[in-house]
């Protein structure tokens, strides 16, 4: 049978042991992935722009500039950070995405199938940072 719900704190511990174990392990897994991902990240050196999963261009992050991507988006690089400054799509999710500067930071424009990813000097993610 289903356990009857009770929201009083004393009976909560006894009745919801399995619940607590599951919730705490999920939170723990979440914390571990946060830690792992933050260890994997470092300041990137370039952005890799892909359209439809195919490499479109790579732009350095240490030089400021504005780049047209296809006919629908404009990517701006300023002070080592890249952001989408224009998109023709209605949702503008990529324009609102925060500026990307660390390896793995990604700006994705789903309607135009564009992904902008920050990469490191050696090409990809470095675990030893």
């Amino acid at each position: 049978m289903e356990e009857k719900k009770s929201f009083s704190p004393s009976s909560f511990l006894n009745k919801h042991r399995a619940d607590l174990v599951l919730i705490l392990s999920l939170i723990l897994i979440c914390a571990i992935t946060f830690l792992a991902v933050s260890l994997m990240r470092e300041e990137g050196e370039a952005v890799r722009v892909e359209i439809d999963g195919e490499l479109y261009a790579t732009y350095p992050l240490d030089t400021d500039g504005e780049y047209r991507i296809g006919e629908k988006n404009v990517l701006t690089v300023k002070d080592g950070r890249a952001y989408m400054s224009y998109a023709d799509c209605p949702d503008k999710t990529c324009v609102r995405t925060r500026a990307a500067s660390k390896t793995g930071d990604t700006i994705i424009c789903l309607p135009n199938r564009i992904s902008v990813t920050v990469i490191g000097g050696e090409g990809d993610v470095d675990l030893e940072s």
Binding site: I23, L26, C30, T33, V37, E50, G104, D105, R113, S115
Partner: peptide, 19 residues
């Protein structure tokens, strides 16, 4: 769909939001 593994960086945020 995007043929990239960098979306894995979204995993912590998505796990937390899922919880």
């Amino acid at each position: 769909i995007l043929q990239t593994d960098v979306v894995i960086y979204y995993l912590p945020a998505l796990l937390l939001s899922g919880i």
